[in-house]
Nucleic acid binder design. Structure first.
Lengths: 228, 228
DNA sequence: GCTCATTCGTCAGTCGTTCACATATTCTTT
DNA sequence: AAAGAATATGTGAACGACTGACGAATGAGC
């Protein structure tokens, strides 16, 4: 998973790769704008390809499907987290802990909403629109459910590694499911109702606390790598 | 949700309804056979409709999509559980408890595999094949993820009702997520590896125990409606 | 500069799904 | 029993996402 990682870094990019990265970025940019303007269903691949001046077949060489293109902005930061989680060099030092990485991921997510920018309102509107489409279009549902599964699996594997358990450790899988489900639930509520005071980041993090608190104390200790 | 409930019961079925039920059942039967023979992708709607002697457009009036048709055998028993959970008459007496209903649902699921029948092997092979397709086809992913979401939401609402909490109670939602995720994880393992001794039912139920044990004791008491 | 692999465009096609409209079948009412 | 309402089904056409085969262009390496 998580194929792409070089954008600003890796200076020795060939011309070919630079062109590819450029079209890829352009595709995301144009599609996001068109989706916002005309809706997901209201935007055909042809519409997007007309502007980028490529054919739909070429677009599908960049993105697995229209849905994957639409979810690219959400997938990219998630891939970064997954890369971190899967990094074999990762040591359980300060900040290397899985739950800690998860917390920081949620902080970034939440801050994008909490810190008031000129674009924050648009950002939220986009998210709400997307959720509406994601409730309707099957391929979009599939792609985002795939996204969630990848996240859950990576979390589970990382948690299992932390505990020295086998990769498919059931306990770790359940904790991961709880963490991901909690994130989803908080986001859902936040998108449904106006903020009413609190911060999204705070809510997201408090659900992590909630989940961790409810683990058996000994396991929680190990998970958080608290020293005795 | 969960529209259909009358099959053997409700004696005063009109001719119209009987015919509908018949074609519906025939569609499921034929499609399941063809899927098993030629695979999901290898079976077109036309193939199915030729045998049942209707048009694809008519088929899509019975089932929302090809994927929904394929998942009908899984959806029907689940709908029965959801009906029970949503029943406003349900009282928290013996067997009325949400967790108890969930346990019985899992028992039925598990017994279909545990009790050795001539068809058990075929049944398991079908499930494995289905899981392979469900990993590939987007619409199938979407439909089964929708199925899981419906189950989780119904469980969450029922748990919330048990606790006298608002319908969208976060705690209940998380417990429901844990229960459903646990079920999925156990099934996955069971389908990956041969049984090796234990019973599927036992494994499914032990994950419920696991989840319930890890709730705060007071909440668990209330959830299980244990009398002081 | 030449070869080679990769990448892209074109063309044609499949399949699921939707829509509008006409037809047939069942239910209801008199 | 027959007329009329309601509902189910068939027909024909179309859309759009996606796939495959094939040839042309383009950048990479010698």
């Amino acid at each position: 998973m998580s194929v792409r990682a070089n954008e600003a870094n890796s200076p020795a990019t060939s011309l070919r790769e630079r062109k590819k990265a450029k079209t890829r970025a352009l595709l995301i940019e144009v599609s996001q704008r068109l989706f916002a303007e005309r809706g997901y269903d209201g935007t055909t691949l042809d519409d997007i390809c007309d502007e980028v001046e490529i054919t739909p077949q070429t677009l599908l060489r960049y993105f697995e499907s229209k849905a994957h293109l639409a979810l690219a902005p959400a997938r990219d930061p998630q891939d970064r987290l997954v890369d971190l989680l899967e990094d074999p060099e990762r040591e359980a030092g300060v900040g290397g802990d899985t739950i800690e990485l998860w917390r920081r991921f949620l902080e970034r997510e939440g801050d994008a909403v909490d810190t008031p920018t000129g674009l924050t309102t648009t950002y939220l509107q986009n998210l709400r629109a997307f959720r509406r489409w994601t409730d309707r279009d099957p391929v979009l549902i599939a792609a985002s459910s795939d996204l969630e599964r990848a996240l859950r699996d990576a979390l589970a594997a990382a948690l299992a590694a932390d505990r020295g358990a086998p990769t498919d450790d059931l306990h770790s899988m359940l904790i991961a499911a709880l963490l991901v489900a909690g994130r989803g639930a908080v986001w859902d509520r936040w998108l449904d109702r106006p903020p009413e005071g609190g911060s999204l980041t705070g809510d997201l993090l408090s659900v992590v606390d909630y989940a961790v608190e409810r683990l058996p104390r000994s396991s929680a200790r190990r998970l958080l790598r608290l020293v005795e």
